[in-house]
């Protein structure tokens, strides 16, 4: 039972110290150069908002891709200077360190793209100059909340599902039974019941956000229970679901981002959570100095924050024309404010 002697570690720290010294010398040069660059950039776009987005997953994950794409769009439009961290740590201490480093570096707007409540509050207190938008649930002067009315899109998806299903059984699987997912699945069911009174919905909560194999297994279990149209909530459950419907050749709906490519014939459409209006509003507020006191940003179906994007290549079943019309009608009603999708979060 042996490990490293303390001498080894001491020596290591000494070497590290040496490395710093060397690096520090190198750094000085870099800083001069870097400073110059920054200056030129500032001249070029004086009112670009210095922005960073911190994503908890790689950009191949639909949740992270939506955030990444929205931020990239603003960068391409010249509205922001963007820095990106993907695969960010999940522990509060770890993500605090990452967020703090951006704040310290003069980032004006931090898009903390997960439910990083505690880390976000710590950093907001420690660095009062930074503005943060996150999926927090408590407001602070410099912490804005991004709402997720994904259930509105799920309702429309459910309406189509009610028309498509032949077995009158639909399924939904989610990472955890949390309000976000609960509301999505409830809305999916309510939508389906609107177009098909006989529909029965079965659900599964797999207890893991990332385990795609378990997500696939959950969807397969529902297929065995005769489900022929399904939806999912969470990265792992959704990718697993896409693989399951492809193999069983049934229908399903994409979650958060466009999932057509994962099951090109089987995805009826994707419930899109579009962050463009959210990030645009936050950037605009920072630019105008109106970010504080921070607010809740909520853009539902009516405001382009949520959408149901149909897949051209979907070919498992014919979607009945009257159901499609009904769905479009309800979409119009939601957009005009005439109809409000019931929000049932199970709490």
């Amino acid at each position: 039972m042996r490990g490293i002697t303390w001498k080894t570690v001491a020596l290591l720290l000494a070497v590290a110290a040496l490395a710093v010294t060397i690096a520090a010398c190198g750094d000085d040069d870099d800083d001069d150069g870097g400073g110059g660059d920054a200056g030129e950039q500032a001249d070029a776009g004086a009112d670009k908002v210095k922005t960073a987005i911190v994503l908890p997953c790689p950009t191949s994950d639909t949740w992270c891709k939506q955030g990444f794409d929205a931020a990239k769009k603003l960068e391409a439009a010249g509205a922001i200077d963007l820095e990106v961290t993907t695969n960010a740590p999940q522990d509060t201490a770890g993500v605090t360190r990452v967020l703090a480093q951006y704040a310290q570096g003069g980032t004006e707007l931090l898009l903390a793209h997960s439910t990083y409540q505690d880390a976000v509050f710590d950093v907001a207190e420690q660095f009062p100059d930074v503005n943060i938008a996150s999926f927090a649930f408590e407001l602070k002067d410099n912490v804005a909340i991004l709402e997720e009315p994904i259930y509105e899109g799920a309702y429309l998806a459910g309406m189509l599902a009610g028309g498509i299903t032949e077995s009158n059984t639909i399924g939904g699987s989610a990472g955890q039974d949390v309000p976000l997912c609960h509301a999505e699945l409830e809305a999916f069911e309510a939508g389906a019941k609107r177009t098909n009174k006989q529909v029965k919905m079965i659900d599964a909560y797999i207890g893991d956000w990332n385990d795609a194999a378990k997500g696939k297994q959950a969807t397969e279990a529902q297929i065995d229970q005769d489900a022929d149209v399904v939806i999912a909530c969470g990265g792992g459950p959704a990718t697993g679901m896409a693989q399951a419907i492809k193999e069983a050749d049934i229908s399903g709906f994409g979650y958060v981002g466009n999932m057509d490519s994962q099951a090109p014939k089987n995805i009826v459409g994707s419930v899109i959570y579009n962050l463009d209006p959210y990030f645009e509003a936050a950037v605009e507020d920072v630019r105008n100095g109106s970010f504080r006191p921070a607010k809740r940003y909520e853009f539902g179906l009516a405001d382009g924050g949520v959408d149901l994007q149909l897949n051209e290549g979907y070919s498992v079943k014919e979607i009945p024309a009257d159901v499609m019309d009904q769905m479009e009608e309800v979409r119009a009603q939601i957009e005009s404010g005439e109809f409000k999708v019931p929000y049932v979060d199970g709490t």
Partner: peptide, 17 residues
């Protein structure tokens, strides 16, 4: 997972954990 699918999941009061 199967028990959840059969028991209806969302309607069941038994914690998924």
């Amino acid at each position: 997972i199967r028990v959840q699918a059969v028991s209806g999941g969302i309607a069941s009061t038994v914690p998924t954990e």
